[in-house]
């Protein structure tokens, strides 16, 4: 069985979508623990009562926390309520494609020692305004085997929780999420988990990581997009905490983390430059194609040029 812990706070529209993403799974042996993190219970209950009409009451449990606690404490409370073989943290704004659990559980059967299996991720930029949500853009979230090693993860988190299905025994081996962390608890946990069996990646993009665009209602924002400063501060605090822990390579964990962070940032900068260069080259190839097209079909080329000129004139 898979336990899915879903933390939520005052986002009933997104919660309803997230529950549906679980209910749509082709793998049916799951239980959903919704942790209402101090929000209005009636809103959550209204959504859950609709969802329960199709899956019955036994598959969906709601924990109403009396007051808001940290995200990781909310996860821990959900996890302590269950004892399944696998677990996933499914945030209330994210979603899975229908075969996520089926594929992840099957992957576990081929990788008995893995701490977690992860799918490819699509990042969905969406706008949420006035109770309606609509996607603006989809892009491939950069994730592959190379980003799932301890040596890479130590520099910064590389995947959102929605991508992962964990083996529950990892909790027994490395402990629960660090509830003292207001953010980045998933990163800190992943670093402990990766040393307890490794992370196995399958490239099919079956997880949707939803982030809200700046024009969205603020209450619907992601913890990352809304609280970038907090993430940076907590990261520094964690690295400082790790300065007292020694790594096998002779460095402190904190120093190693900072070193990899710098290397990753530099690599990302190089990658961005390469992408920009590739786009420039693509643009040049496109120009060549346009010229070739103009030779083949001059009338169409003239029409297109006239349109472009009109657009430019109008812009001025």
């Amino acid at each position: 069985m898979v336990t899915i812990v879903m933390r939520t706070y005052e986002r009933p529209v997104l919660l309803a979508r997230a529950i549906a993403s679980v209910q749509n799974q082709s793998f049916s042996d799951w239980e959903l623990i919704i942790v209402n993190n101090g929000g209005d219970p009636s809103g959550v209950e209204a959504v859950v009562s609709v969802a329960r009409t199709t899956t019955g009451t036994s598959k969906i449990t709601v924990l109403h926390l009396p007051e808001r606690v940290g995200m990781e404490e909310a996860s821990n409370q959900g996890l302590r309520a269950t004892s399944s073989e696998y677990f996933a943290i499914h945030d209330d704004d994210d979603s899975w494609r229908p075969t996520f659990l089926e594929t992840a559980v099957r992957t576990f059967t081929e990788h008995h020692d893995a701490a977690a299996v992860l799918s490819g991720v699509t990042r969905v930029h969406e706008t949420f305004k006035g109770g309606k949500v609509w996607p603006v853009m989809h892009e491939n979230f950069p994730l592959d085997d190379s980003r799932l090693t301890y040596e890479r993860l130590i520099g910064g988190n590389t995947f959102p929780p929605i991508a992962a299905l964990f083996r529950r025994s990892v909790l027994d081996a490395v402990g629960y999420f660090d509830s003292s962390l207001p953010v980045l608890g998933d990163w800190e946990f992943n670093l402990r988990a990766v040393r307890e069996g490794g992370l196995v990646f399958f490239p099919e993009r079956l997880a949707n990581y939803h982030t809200r665009t700046p024009e969205s209602d603020r209450a619907a924002g992601n913890s990352i997009t809304v609280g970038e400063d907090l993430h940076l501060r907590v990261k520094k605090e964690l690295q400082a905490r790790w300065d007292s822990e020694m790594e096998p390579n002779g460095k402190t964990k904190g120093a190693f983390s900072r070193q990899v962070e710098v290397e990753v940032d530099a690599a990302e900068t190089r990658l961005q430059a390469e992408i920009a260069e590739a786009q420039r080259a693509q643009s040049q190839r496109s120009t060549v194609r346009r010229i070739a097209g103009a030779v083949r079909d001059p009338k169409r080329a003239i029409r297109a040029a006239v349109h472009q000129v009109r657009v430019l004139v109008k812009r001025r």
């Binding site: 529209v13 309803a16 979508r17 549906a20 609709v50 199709t54 309606k132 949500v133 996607p135």
Partner: peptide
């Protein structure tokens, strides 16, 4: 996607 808010009212 416009179905999303309706999920609160009907399964």
């Amino acid at each position: 996607w416009d179905a999303t808010p309706n999920r609160m009212r009907v399964s």
